[in-house]
Structures are given as C-alpha cells and as structure tokens.
Design a binder for these strands. Structure first.
Lengths: 186, 186
DNA sequence: GGGCACATGTAAGCTGTTACATGATTAA
DNA sequence: TTAATCATGTAACAGCTTACATGTGCCC
C-alpha cells in the first residue's frame, strides 16, 4: 500500500464515523488516533479535494464560507473497505532513544539513566491518557458497533506502554550495576 | 534534533565501533540496528562526504578504487557525544495495523482476526531474531564495553515484541467472542 | 568469462511538515 | 472590539527511498 493511500484511508475512515470539516478531521485524528496516527493540514485538504473529485466524499456548503462539511458517499464506503484490505505497509524503524542507548558508552551511564527515566515517565503519562481515552470510548453510546475495534487499538498502546515501563525498570537496575562496577574500578 | 542530524549520529556511531566503507555502514545498520533504525545509500554517501569535509571522519583509499574506508576522527568523537546528548526527536506515529483495526467494523471480525494473527506471527519471528542478535553480541569479545548498551536495545525490542504477542492473544479472544455474538444475532 | 557480492554515487520523485496568508465566528 | 478558535488553502522545503549508472574483485 503506497504511503499516500494511507492518508486516504485515514480521511475516509474518519468520515465513516460522521461528516466533518477538514479542520475537524485533523482534530479527530490528533485526539483519537493520536497514539498511532497523524496527519497534517497539508495532506488533508488536497486529499479531500481529490476525494470529492472522485465522488468518494460529498461537500456540503462551499469552501468560501469557511464551513464545508464532508460526508462519505456510498462509493467512498466501498473504497474504504478496499483500502483497509490492502497489505500493511511496514514503517521504517527510527527510534531515537534506542539509537542513543546503543551508543550509550559515549554518553556514559548517568546520561543513559536519565534517558531511561524520561522514557519511563513518558510511558506512564501515556498510560493515563489511554485510560482517559478508554473511558471516552465506553461513554460514547453513538458508536457502539465500533467500540470493540477502538478498544483493541487502545489495548495495543497500553501493552506497548507497559512494556516500555517494564523494560525501563529492568534497564535502570542494570545500569546501576554498571555504575557501581565503574566506581569499583577507580 | 533535526532529522538530518540523526543520520549523522547513526553514521558517526557506526564508525565509532570500527572503520568501515559506506557500503559496510549500510550493512551494519541494517543487520545490527535494523530493529530500530534504518538508513539508505542515498543518505549515507552524501553524509560521509560532508563529514569528511568537516574533518569528522577521515577517508583512507580513494573513492575511485571503490575501496575507501572511513574512520572517525577525534573531532568526530566529540561531535558524536554532542549529537547523542541532543533531545530526542519523537517520531510521528503511523501504525498501519492499528489504523486498519480502528476501522475494523468495515473489515469484519474475520479479516481483523487474520491481521492480528499475522501480527502475532511476525512478533514471534522477531523474537527469534532478537535471540540470535543477543547471542552474537555476547559472543563478540572485541566490544565488551559496548555490550551492556547493545543488550539494552535488544531487550527493548524483546519487550515490545512480547507485548505485541500478549495483546494479539487477548484481542483474538475478544474478536472470537464478537464473532460468536454476531452469529447468535442471526 | 559469467555471475555474484562488494562498492560508490546521483537523480528523480514521493511524502510529509512547516510556515504563511487569509478569512469567519464566537465569547469575553 | 479584540482575542481566540475555527476554517481553508498553498508554497516551500526537508527528508528519504528507489532506481539507475557504473565499476571492482573474486570465485566457479
């Protein structure tokens, strides 16, 4: 699946929940899919125009009034199903934290400790956010059919965050052992 | 930290382990950092030339002979330490699997099941690869000082993979419940 | 001498972000 | 009425991948 089609998927998917303005699509993606997806205005508006041209979404209200709402059409629904069935494009891995830790010898144990502690804190904070999202999803009576799928994605992020915390805790212990050993050598 | 500096970090880091050709840098990044980093030739060669110009690496042998080895210089070491201390640039999240599952209602429980099963299989295969990398690192007597840091990154990936497996298992159970409920409604 | 792995590099092109320009609407 | 938020869009640019062009050295 080409990269561009993924934006198309996200936009059509957002509109499959309810009609929205382009601005609202961005907000929804940031607030609801934020833990696993992102789109910028520079992507969304051109795609919306393109989707409109192809009849996959319909615009209500003109762009000039600064209040045009987009709704997914029947062909749009079909296109969304088609896109969702495409093979998943594996992301190119780029983890700045692990890059630093891999070359951690040049940074020293203390700085690595700080990196790990920060990662742990960040993951813990994310867990709180996921709990809030979970509550929101459970409270949303309008989209009961979507609920199990939405909860699936939250669970994925929660598992990942808990794994990060467990890894950080174990690594902090190991780094401490390394620091003590380093002091012993002096 | 700007994106471009991250490539600089990866290249200088690779050369901090031992002098290498550009080709070998790519191989090393793919084989050793592959689970959390990637670089392509189109990035590596221009950066090497730039680093040479700035005196951060030195070239032995000419490009024309197709066998020039790059080594990190003393200023290069200092630059690497500086780069490693830069704040981490958070990656923009883009998880194609979670995007599909979020809109899973349109795909149906069976297709989502397949996605989860594939994710589980992939994570299990990765775990095997990490075990192999771990053995390699432990067997590498030349870089004993780097070892604890390298093992840290492997542990991170292992934790993540195990979290994926646990999540997939739990989610498969939930999806089955959903399928059964769906059949009961008919 | 044919194929393969090693090796260097460039150019085109895609994806995506950022910054900017512009305007409407609403609440203080 | 002024500030904040909602809203639409574009242009420039950064970053990265891919494909291509080219060549070396080795082994069968």
């Amino acid at each position: 699946m080409a990269r561009e089609q993924q934006t198309e998927t996200a936009v059509l998917g957002a509109l499959s929940v309810e009609p929205m303005t382009g601005y609202a699509i961005r907000e929804a993606i940031r607030d609801v899919l934020g833990h696993f997806w992102s789109e910028s205005f520079g992507q969304i508006y051109p795609i919306l125009r393109e989707l409109e041209r192809r009849g996959l979404v319909s615009r209500r209200g003109s762009a000039r009034t600064h209040a045009s709402t987009f709704a997914i059409t029947e062909p749009g629904q079909a296109r969304l199903r088609e896109l969702l069935a495409q093979p998943i494009q594996p992301p190119t891995p780029r983890n700045g934290l692990l890059l630093r830790l891999f070359f951690g010898r040049h940074l020293g144990p203390e700085a690595c400790r700080d990196l790990l502690a920060a990662a742990r804190t960040g993951a813990a904070r994310q867990l709180e956010r996921y709990a809030a999202i979970r509550v929101e999803i459970l409270a949303d009576a309008a989209n009961a059919e979507d609920r199990p799928y939405w909860l699936l994605t939250v669970a994925a992020s929660e598992h990942a965050a808990r794994a990060t915390i467990a890894w950080a805790d174990a690594s902090l212990v190991e780094l401490d052992a390394l620091r003590t050993a380093g002091e012993g050598e002096r």
